[in-house]
């Protein structure tokens, strides 16, 4: 089990953001969390990252409890936020080298350059400072970071938000490749189309609860949209 939530609960000053979530995600599984803003998707991601502490229950990644063993768990974990914010004065390659070495890996400059190109970054952009990059280019560096780190667990928080269709499509292909390599992925998104495309399972969150959980293989895009809208209109 790569990701495991057991009775995971989070309250902010008495307001419940997440009600006792139970969830398991295996290697090669892509679980897409759908839901409106404030449904608890980002809270779930942040609990799995160990950025916040649960009020009750536990979030485990690669067998490590994120409250007590977050540093060990993060060794095999990668994270791509909605906006991958890098050091603007460093180039794409310098950023990737820095974060990869921080994670304890050092594949070498040529290998990292190849990873960036495979992530879809143009060769000419690799040595440019990141402050000249578009959001899509920064998201690609984020994917490259996950690849270079050889992460076995990947958390994504609305990674395609604001990307143009082409960039979004390229991003989906990258995720599919990681999925096929056995990486477990938990992705919070509003994008039903991408969830259907890359996800192996989808879960719909509402008011901090996982109200529906289905395999994408069992659903057509229209059915997914219908289920989603049903829950949104309740």
């Amino acid at each position: 089990m790569v990701f495991e939530a057991i009775g995971l609960r989070k309250e902010y000053q008495g307001a419940v953001a997440l009600h006792g979530l139970d969830l398991q995600i295996d290697a090669g599984d892509v679980f897409c969390l759908l839901g409106a803003n404030g449904a608890g998707k980002t809270t779930t991601i942040q609990l799995f990252l160990g950025f916040i502490e649960p009020t009750a229950g536990s979030a485990r990644v690669l067998g490590h409890d994120m409250t007590r063993e977050s540093v060990a768990a993060r060794a095999g974990l990668a994270y791509i936020p909605e906006n991958v914010m890098l050091y603007p004065h460093l180039t794409g390659l310098e950023n990737l080298t820095f974060f990869t070495r921080l994670a304890g890996r050092d594949p070498g400059a040529q290998a990292l350059r190849t990873i960036l190109e495979e992530a879809g970054l143009q060769a000419a952009a690799i040595d440019r400072p990141v402050n000249t990059y578009s959001k899509g280019m920064r998201q690609k560096v984020g994917v490259a970071m996950a690849v270079a780190k050889e992460a076995r667990a990947l958390l994504l928080d609305e990674p395609t938000s604001g990307l143009d269709p082409r960039a979004s499509n390229e991003f989906s292909r990258l995720l599919t490749r990681l999925r096929d390599q056995g990486v477990a992925i938990l992705m919070a998104t509003h994008d039903l189309f991408r969830a259907q495309e890359v996800g192996t399972r989808v879960g719909i969150m509402k008011h901090g609860q996982l109200v529906a959980c289905r395999s994408t293989a069992e659903l057509t895009p229209a059915e997914l949209e219908r289920i989603y809208l049903e829950h949104m209109h309740d």
Partner: peptide, 14 residues
């Protein structure tokens, strides 16, 4: 503020 702290923390560096 720049968003890099989340990426730093996610690397697992103490």
């Amino acid at each position: 503020e720049g968003g890099t702290l989340r990426l730093l923390a996610a690397t697992g560096i103490p």
